[in-house]
Design a protein around this nucleic acid. Structure first.
Lengths: 100, 100
DNA sequence: ATCTTTGTTCGTAAAATTACGAACAATATG
DNA sequence: CATATTGTTCGTAATTTTACGAACAAAGAT
């Protein structure tokens, strides 16, 4: 795309969030974290049929977009929802979806 | 991914919807259609900084995932929200997002 | 019947995503 | 200190996505 001024910041943010949610593994992780407050990468690795490096990439994506956060609890990493940005996503999607 | 039985149908559906929403152009189209009931491809082509063939691809993606539907009104095509699937998306995302 | 308008399809190129295993880093444990 | 555990980073390959222009199809207008 040449320009980008056509899109509002909200639209771009919504697209970013949506894109991050657009993969079953990432959806799975998010949904788990909405249900159990936190988890360790290893818990996920045990149940998900992907290499740990791949999982790490997916978690990084979710972190980068701000939907989750990781806290080092050596040698593990504890992941949980980033509540601030989750609230943002809630607001954006509710507004958007309920408009019809 | 080798297996896929880990993911629920709802998760996969949510990921599919989210993926479709995961691009500014598609987000723009969806948001427009939530606000004005319908539009012609040409209206979008006028305002969006992309080739008409690219736009057509994006619209096809939204159609394929079921979020919009197109009706031929020759020589134009009228697009609008697919209400049935939109309701599905609402339900899935509300359930998912409100869980935190 | 020809031309115009509208949008899709096709072929293709560039970039991004998804995935893996190997190597590495950090820290706990023996 | 050596070793085991946990997860990230790196290099790489395969696939998918995004984008364009050219060609095409359908139908209305002249």
């Amino acid at each position: 795309m040449k320009s980008v001024t056509i899109f509002s910041e909200e639209q771009k943010q919504a697209a970013r969030f949506a894109k991050a949610m657009g993969h079953p593994v990432r959806m799975y992780v998010l949904e788990l974290l909405t249900k159990q407050s936190c988890c360790y990468s290893g818990d996920l690795s045990d149940v998900l049929p992907i290499a740990k490096s791949t999982l790490s990439q997916h978690l990084k994506e979710l972190k980068d977009v701000g939907l989750i956060q990781g806290e080092i609890e050596a040698p593990k990493v504890k992941y949980c929802i980033n509540r601030e940005n989750w609230a943002k996503a809630q607001k954006i999607f509710n507004q958007f979806l309920e408009a019809v």
